[in-house]
């Protein structure tokens, strides 16, 4: 492995924090959801990096399971967004506050 492991870890941390900034600043529910996918992917990059640098495939198995969970989460989350849009005709998460006390 020619290049230092730190490069991959810093790229992964950068992408994770871009995702955090997206969740905190955007108000469109779908874009908030896509930012969460971005954060999951940056965690995947870290797992694959360590798996590859240690010559052990366990990290890549975890990436496989994370992808499964992300697919399930996307299906259920988009169904919730669809049901929410049908009731309130908006995607702005500032307007959807029926669970807020």
């Amino acid at each position: 492995m020619n290049i230092p492991i730190e490069y991959y870890l810093i790229l992964s941390g950068f992408m994770f924090l871009v995702g955090v900034a997206g969740v905190l600043t955007r108000r469109n529910a779908i874009i908030v959801f896509m930012s969460i996918e971005l954060m999951l992917n940056s965690a995947n990059l870290t797992l694959v990096t360590f798996s590859s640098y240690m010559g052990n495939s366990t990290g890549q198995l975890f990436v496989f399971f994370v992808m499964t969970v992300a697919a399930a989460e996307a299906a259920v989350g988009l169904a919730i967004i669809l049901a929410m849009f049908r009731n309130k005709l908006t995607l702005n998460i500032d307007d959807i506050n029926i669970l807020k006390w």
Partner: peptide
């Protein structure tokens, strides 16, 4: 296959299905 092929197609499908009216998406 899974992310770009399946999950993001689902996202694009929902975005095109809903086509929300113009509103302020950045926090005010």
């Amino acid at each position: 296959i899974v992310y770009a092929g399946a999950i993001m197609v689902l996202f694009l499908f929902v975005i095109m299905l809903l086509k929300p009216e113009h509103e302020k998406y950045f926090s005010h």
